[in-house]
Simulated scan of single mutants.
Amino acid sequence: MTIIRLGYVAMSMELTNSSPSQTMTFKQFQKLSDREAGIRKLERIAKSNLENCLRLLKHNKGNDISFFRFSSRLIPLANHEALESWNYLSPLQKELKVLGDFAKKERMRVDFHPDHFVLLNTPNNETLKASTKTLAMHVRLLEGMGIDATHRCVLHVGGGYNDKEKALERFIHNWMYTPKGIQDTVMLENDDTTFTMLDTLYLCEKLGVPLVFDYHHHLACHNDEDWEKDWARVVSTWDVSPLPLKMHISSPKNKKEYRSHSDYIDSEMFFAFLNGVRDSTPQIDCMIEAKQKDKALFQLMEEVKKRNDIEVVNRSTFKLK
């Protein structure tokens, strides 16, 4: 049997006043007459975001959810060039430790998906430096939580820059100049416009990086529709990881807006994927990327429970018979 564990992204649709992504723009910061008072305000916002993350993890525990993606916007303006002297982690040590201790105690898998502007295959050196700096911030956040950063950040390959083959080779070139501590935290995901599952597999196998298979992205962008014949290769990329294989699941909003995410998950579409991976690996952690977040997870589990080809483990996990 294969265990399927469901997770969701960043925030809850069930909890009120629990956003982990409260922010302050640099324009707002500039309007403050006292720079130090502005920094203290940024720190208060960051503390509130981390406290809300803890609320979310407690909500997840109450609903048997042990797989969760943190928001990458926990600390507003953390990497802004005008605030380079700000030691943003120092005042957050307590909140980070409490968050990490809870996640470890409850054996929760947590990770990040840095924003689309993190590009390791960019031809622009300044963009590469900024991308590396952003990834380093994610590593430091995980270290502050006391969580092993290995394979905790999902990235897309990046831009095609009008020459996909050259862009793939540039990723490899830039990777060689990426610090080992950042390399260790990266997982790569196939995208919905440029880099297919096979393109991403090429990099993952060459660099020893796990592949996070996004089934919706594959349906929107592929050279070969038959993903199943290469599934064993995807599974093998996780041999380097201490974590179970991870994939993303979402459903198209509609035929016209096929690449956009729907509010909920089409369970038949999901099981079209699952039927192809039965017994291929002991466990698959499936991150739900749906507009309705935890509500989408709860609805999907209600539909899953009606099936006779699964065995329910708890409110977020089931086994494929």
Rank of each mutant, 00 (worst) to 15 (best):
F29Y: 14
L42Q: 04
R55M: 05
L56Y: 04
L57Y: 00
L57A: 00
N63D: 10
F67S: 01
R69P: 02
R69Q: 07
S71N: 09
I75F: 13
I75Y: 03
A78D: 02
W86Q: 10
Y88M: 03
G100T: 09
K105I: 12
M108F: 08
H113E: 02
F117L: 12
L119H: 05
T122F: 01
K133A: 08
T134D: 12
H138W: 09
G144F: 08
G144I: 13
M145Y: 07
H156Q: 04
V157G: 02
K166G: 13
A167D: 03
W175T: 05
D184A: 13
D192L: 06
T194C: 11
L198V: 09
Y202R: 10
C204G: 06
E205T: 12
H217W: 08
A220H: 09
C221F: 11
H222L: 08
W231S: 04
M247C: 15
I249P: 01
S250Y: 06
K256A: 13
S260P: 02
S262F: 12
S262G: 11
S267Q: 11
L274K: 07
D285K: 02
C286H: 04
I288F: 07
K293Q: 08
M301R: 01
E302L: 09
E303G: 07
I310T: 15
V313G: 08
